[in-house]
Every structure is written in C-alpha cells, then in structure tokens.
Design a protein around this nucleic acid. Sequence first.
DNA 1: AGAATATTGTACCAATCGGTACAGAAAGGT
DNA 2: ACCTTTCTGTACCGATTGGTACAATATTCT
Lengths: 182, 182
Amino acid sequence: MSNTLSKCLPALTECFREYGYEGTSLARITAATGLGKGSLYNAFPEGKDQMLAVVLEEITLWFETQVFAPLQLADEPVAGIMEMFDATSAYFKSGKRACLMGTLSATQCRDRFANHIKSYFFQWQQVLTDTLIRAGWENSQAKFFAEEILASIQGALTLSRALDDPAIFDRTIERLRHRLTE
Amino acid sequence: MSNTLSKCLPALTECFREYGYEGTSLARITAATGLGKGSLYNAFPEGKDQMLAVVLEEITLWFETQVFAPLQLADEPVAGIMEMFDATSAYFKSGKRACLMGTLSATQCRDRFANHIKSYFFQWQQVLTDTLIRAGWENSQAKFFAEEILASIQGALTLSRALDDPAIFDRTIERLRHRLTE
DNA sequence: AGAATATTGTACCAATCGGTACAGAAAGGT
DNA sequence: ACCTTTCTGTACCGATTGGTACAATATTCT
C-alpha cells in the first residue's frame, strides 16, 4: 500500500463516518486529507466507491487484529470479552464516534457494500459466540447472547448520539459486562 | 394541512428513510411523490429542510398517538408495554424498515434536526420509564431498563438490516418481552 | 547525470444539485 | 358569469457534483 494512501485513510474514514457516503463530497475529502484530485484519483482510480471500499476493508482489518484475534486467542474467555469491551469503548470513544458499518446499513447504499458490512458483523458475532461457548455457555444461548451484545452496542451508539449523552453508551457496556459475570 | 401535502407525506417519508437526507434529491422526491417542483415548493416554501422537518414532526405525532399515549393510558402497565412492542414491531416491519430518527443521528445533519430527534427518543424513554414504575419497578431501575429497551430496538434495527435478517429484530423484541415478565 | 516512472496541481467537463420565476390551469367565492 | 386565490408544470439559474486530461513536478532506477 502506498504511503500517500495509508496516510490519508484516517481522515477519509472520519469523513465517511461523519457525513455518510452521499454527504462526503470530493471537495470535503480534499479539504480533510489535504490531497488534490490528482493524488486521490491516482490512489483510488475507481473513485469514491473505491475510497469507501478501502476504508471498510481497513476497519474490518483493524477489528480482526485488535478485537477478534485477541478474543479468539484469549486463555481466559471471560477476561477476553472484557478486553473486547475495553477496545470497543475506546474505539467508539464512549459513543461519541459513530459506527460506519452501522451507519451505512440504514440507507440505500448499503446494497453496494453489503459484503463488507455483513462480513464485519458476521465475524464479530461468530468469534464472540465461540468465546462465550468456551466460557461455558450453551451453544444457541451463546449465539443469541452474542447477537444481543452486538445489537446493544449498535443501539447504544445510536441512542447516545441521538440524545447527545455518552453516559448511555457507557452504562450499556457496563450492563453487558455485568451480565457476563453474574 | 393541505390535501396535497398530506398525500405526499408517506412517499416523502419513505424517501428520506431509504436514502437519508443527502441521498434524497429533489428529482427523487418528484419521482416518488408524483409532484412537480412547483407543487413541492408551494407546499414547502423553505425547501428540503422543511420537508424533512415536517416528516419528522409527522413521525413524532404518529408515535405520540399510536404508542406513547396508549402506553400512558393503559390500565395494566405490563400489557401496555406488550402493545408497545406490537406497535413497534409492526411499524418497523420486523426490522426491514429503518428508523429515520436513528439514521439521522449518525451523520452530520443530525445537528440541524437535533430537537426533533431528541424529543422523539426523550418522550419515548420518559413514558416507558413511567409505565415501568407503574408496573412496580424501582425508579432508577425503570429509567435504565427503558434506556436498555430503546437501545436494543435501535440496535436490532441496525443489525437486522446489516445482516439482512429480520429474525434478529424479532428475537430481540421477544427477549425484551420475556425480561418484562420474568 | 539522465532516462523512466510515479505523483501532483490545475483547468476543465457534462450532469445534477437545490432553488426561483412565472405563465397558465384549477378551484373557490361572490 | 366573474374575479380572486391557489396550485402546478416548465424553463431556467448559479453552484456543486463526481470524474477526466494533462502538463509539470518529484521520485526512482540505471
């Protein structure tokens, strides 16, 4: 991956996260990244679509290495899930940062990136289910609790931003932690 | 309210719900509603902003009359909440339909409609909290469980659409129902 | 150094954006 | 019937959209 491309990825990611796909114009991208159109279309010959696609792949990669893998490799499954909550809470900045995958799911352009979105959530649920089973949960119970955890996180992000209250996100994570240990 | 305006509101609502604010162009609105620009700007002199504002007010009004009021007036609080789940599940078509308030919360244009969004979720949590208290829940427990219910619904909507699986939404509602009666 | 390659800024493009102007059609009141 | 008001279709506006062309500049390789 070229240096230019990897350097502009964070700014690009925050652009899409903050403004959505349609709301992120090339003008806004050039302003946020400091790169002209020449550079952008050199790095992303297929344009805006490719930019978002690369961003989504980068996000998935980050979660794979920073969240999913540690979860899977954890010696102590419950402690591993706790670390997952830590990483998740840090990543989403206690609900102040939206989830791009979740944001895209709502609108029409979801279809164009359905594979990225599905893969992200599917992997997360899968590895979380496995870890819950390792922690002693019955198979289908584990699957549904994993589903519940993911939905709670997504909903807490939405509600926190809607009511402009990060405490909602923090309380939700705390409740999930508590249910894991009771 | 004029006849023209009220007749085009459902189509307008689905437009914003499906494509988001930025993704909903006037061309798309004219196609969806069958109204020309002349008619549209006669009904909404302030343009797209006003269209979404009216749509949001209409949604809030619907929930006030169809969900919040019945909840508040229910003789049997638990039964009232069950009916809330029925209405919610029907409204969101088992997760196939996105929540416009939630969708808007994610992106930047949230700021412009923050009052509508906050009012919607705040009212919902408020009336749900009151009903839970009537059902015998301790005050702060009720508030947090109401918060948890709203977040779960929002998250289930997101996850259902992301994974293209309405069963996720249905299971989430079922779990919430169960927690109410145990 | 000098040639080949990769990168970048700028000018430009057609298409579409949200919005306006306005003439004519409907509708309503008298 | 008439006049007034409301409504609507169409042509048009400047601004912005995503994207391209290309010359000029860095960078890399020999």
